[in-house]
């Protein structure tokens, strides 16, 4: 990929615009915020639709219940807060009031992964997919680029049930073209290959594409799948691709416990004929650092993903040789 042609989008700006466009078309759409909207996606919404923006300050348990009350009354609320407060502080309200009732409440978990590394482990959450994913009825969308973020807003509103949308702070490199249409529950094959399947989500899709191009230079043909819906997972594409390549690597800016890797492992363990390597963050609270420092520290740069994949492929070759002895 030529570096001059790379386009980057700010996810929060994309979401802010999409929410305004959506709200213009559908007067059921309302915005619920917890003292964090202006720096995130709520500013333009508030400017255009002040009557449909409800501020609750620093009280996420109440705000989630209020969102449920709005939704059960026919509104389509989008509620935004930092991931720890959007997903954990009000977890029981999400479970009981939003998911059990299967209401159209759309939760935007802002600053997922290492978005806000210097704020430390109270704000850096690498367990949200596992926690939220354990609840029935909820859909988890983890977009990789601008077009996906925009589509996620429209598709979340359309879906008659709760959605948890992971929103990253980093500028997202454009992967999909104009006119991209997101189908919830369907992954996108963004690079074709036949020797290895790389399944990635969010920020790690761009890094995985770069790693796959490095592998290609070494003569290894890797397929890259952008898994933007983490629940329900695109089981068909995982099985189709892994049946072909027999080797799968998952890459996520999330704990390897109960994230994308675990979800893929669940499919492969029961139905798939492929070996799996999970690349992500080991079961621990993350150290503190700037975004680029953390990505490097945890081995999630394209170069380090490339190295880990090479180790995985070589180890497998060694195993095959030892079996022959």
């Amino acid at each position: 990929m030529d570096s001059e042609k790379k386009i980057y989008d700010n996810p929060r700006k994309v979401i802010a615009e999409a929410l305004v466009d959506l709200a213009k078309r559908d007067d059921r759409v309302v915005y619920v915020s917890c003292d964090s909207s202006l720096g995130a996606s709520g500013g333009p919404f508030n400017k255009n639709f002040p009557q449909r923006h409800f501020e609750f300050g620093i009280q996420e348990q109440n705000a989630m219940g209020e969102a449920a009350g709005l939704a059960v009354s026919g509104k389509i609320p989008f509620i935004a807060a930092y991931v720890p407060f959007a997903a954990f502080r009000c977890f029981e309200q999400i479970r009981d009031d939003v998911c059990k009732t299967r209401l159209n409440v759309n939760i935007m978990g802002n600053n997922c992964g290492f978005s806000v590394g210097p704020l430390g482990p109270t704000h850096v959450i690498i367990e949200d997919v596992g926690v939220i994913g354990s609840v029935p009825n909820i859909t988890i969308i983890s977009p990789a680029d601008g077009p996906q973020y925009r589509e996620a807003i429209f598709k979340a509103a359309e879906l008659d049930g709760p959605v948890y949308l992971r929103v990253h702070r980093q500028e997202a490199r454009r992967i999909h073209g104009d006119g991209y249409s997101l189908k919830i529950g369907r992954a996108d094959r963004v690079l074709e290959g036949d020797e290895l399947t790389i399944i990635a989500t969010s920020t790690m899709v761009a890094n995985s594409i770069d790693a796959a191009l490095m592998l290609k230079a070494k003569g290894i043909s890797a397929e890259v799948i952008n898994m933007s819906t983490l629940k329900p997972l695109d089981r068909d594409l995982v099985l189709e691709s892994s049946s072909k390549t027999k080797k799968v690597v998952t890459v996520e800016e999330h704990s390897v416990v109960n994230g994308l890797g675990s979800a893929v492992a669940n499919i492969l363990a029961t139905s798939g004929p492929a070996l799996l390597k999970k690349i992500g963050i080991e079961d621990n609270f993350a150290v503190v650092g700037e975004y680029d420092e953390l990505i490097d520290y945890y081995g999630l740069t394209a170069e380090k993903i490339f190295d880990k994949i090479q180790d995985f492929l070589h180890r497998e070759e060694d195993d095959e040789n030892s079996n022959r002895l």
Binding site: F54, Q61, N62, A63, M64, G65, E66, A67, A68, G69, L70, A71, V72, S73, G74, K75, P77, E92, Q93, D96, D97
Partner: peptide, 13 residues
Amino acid sequence: GHGLPVAGGMALA
């Protein structure tokens, strides 16, 4: 502790 928040949302709607 869940009822009053939900009632608030219903009232706003």
